[in-house]
Amino acid sequence: MRIEVEETSGAARAGKLYTPHGAVETPTFMPVGTKASVKGLTPREVRETGAGVVLGNTYHLYLRPGPDLIREAGGLHSFSGWDGPMLTDSGGYQVFSLADTRKLTEDGAEFVSVYDGSRHVFTPELTTRVQEDLGADVAMVLDECPPADAGYEYQAESLRRTARWAERCQEAHTREDQALFGIVQGGLYEDLRRESLERTVSLDFPGYAVGGLSVGESREEMLRVVALTAAGLPEDKPRYFMGIGDPVGVLGVISLGVDMFDCVLPTRLARHGSVLTADGRLNLKNSRFRRDLGPLETGCACEACRDYSQAYLAHLVRENELLGHRLLTLHNLTFMGELCRRAREEIRAGSFESWSRGWISRYLAGAPA
């Protein structure tokens, strides 16, 4: 696992991430396939959106169908039919999202299964072993992702626990064909971020993630912390922002030197009838789309824009037809893939900052409907 930064424009970087399952151009948006599937799409369709990396969720795959079966099938690539690079999280996000039903100790995180109520303890050693069984190209250390409003003392205790867990994950990790990424925490506090940076970078991971953001803070606070964190990460290692998928935020973190990012937002919006366009977000449940026979977005190469009208897609959405969910998912992921492709192009041309400002201005001017 290595990244080759080919061009920069300000702090923004364009290059290639090399993995055992091929090279990926960066910056890159990574669709989330929580249960070994990007909802509604085949691997071939996901590839056609321009996606290079797909995510899997360790928590859910551990519970169902279980890592033993996936290992027996030859790993997550063989099991799911995706032959490109993959990344698995560690269950750290569930420490945040399932806070009401989990218990944290120095040993790990005890969860109540969302499926059957059974209890499971995720230790650094267990999550590392499970991710080795899943066989993704990138695995993540177990961390705690506190909410944005967590106080200073809690954030300090949390980042130090995450640092100790990272050491244990590193000691437990044995696969040479899998890169284990460290995660920088510390909330919105600059001194804690710097402490987490120092402790995490000292472990010399092959890649690093910016964690603990997109959890309720303002965009201004988020970008401030990303700028501080990215500036403290090694230039020759990949940088991953965990959990961002709105187009304006994506361009913001690219401008600060982030290479990889993921989020369920584009696919979740599609399932609720919303699409991303260069002129803002559109809600096809709005009555103004009922008789519009034009495409969602002129010039978009996805199947939804190429072959169907807004009126037909709006009809599918109103009737809750599965085809509507699929087509809008194809569009939103194609939109994110094209956004990243254009960002790479502008970085290589040295014009990313001015292009990004213009793109964001147009996007925000299009009133969401």
Score class of each variant (00 low, 15 high):
D68L: 15
V121R: 12
G75K: 13
G74W: 01
V46K: 01
T105L: 00
E45R: 10
V114T: 01
S113A: 10
L126S: 09
P85W: 02
F122Q: 01
T128P: 11
D107Y: 07
S97G: 07
T123P: 09
D133T: 00
P85V: 04
P65Y: 03
R102M: 08
V114G: 07
H120K: 01
A139F: 10
V130M: 08
H77K: 13
L98C: 03
A109Y: 06
T105K: 10
G74V: 07
L69H: 12
F79K: 00
E72D: 03
G52V: 13
H60T: 10
V114R: 03
T58Q: 12
R44E: 09
T101C: 08
T128A: 09
G117Y: 12
T58I: 04
R71G: 08
L134P: 02
P85T: 13
L55R: 08
V38R: 05
G108L: 10
G84Q: 03
G92D: 12
L126P: 15
L55V: 09
V138A: 06
T42W: 15
A136I: 07
G66I: 15
S113R: 01
D68M: 06
G92S: 06
D137N: 15
V112N: 01
L76E: 00
R129M: 01
H77M: 04
M140R: 11
V53R: 03
S97W: 09
A99Y: 05
A136E: 05
G84N: 00
S90G: 06
H120I: 13
D107V: 14
S97D: 03
E72L: 15
D100C: 14
L61W: 00
D83F: 09
Y62P: 07
R129Y: 02
G81F: 10
P67T: 08
G117T: 11
S97T: 03
D100M: 10
S37G: 02
V114E: 02
H120M: 12
V121C: 09
K39C: 02
A73N: 05
L69P: 07
A99P: 06
W82Y: 02
D100I: 10
A73I: 02
R64T: 11
T49S: 09
L55A: 04
Y59I: 13
G75F: 04
A136H: 15
M86Q: 07
F96Y: 14
Y62S: 10
G66S: 03
E132C: 11
R44M: 06
S118K: 03
G52K: 11
L76S: 03
V130A: 05
G135N: 11
L61A: 05
L126T: 15
G135L: 02
D107W: 01
G52R: 03
T88P: 04
Q131S: 14
D107T: 04
H60W: 11
H77N: 03
G50V: 13
L98Q: 07
S80M: 11
D100Q: 08
G108N: 08
Y59L: 12
T123Y: 03
R119N: 14
L69N: 11
F122K: 00
T128E: 03
T58N: 10
G50T: 15
V114Q: 00
F79E: 00
G91Q: 15
R71F: 04
S78H: 14
P124H: 05
V46S: 02
L87I: 15
Y115C: 06
H77Q: 05
D133L: 01
F96K: 01
H60V: 14
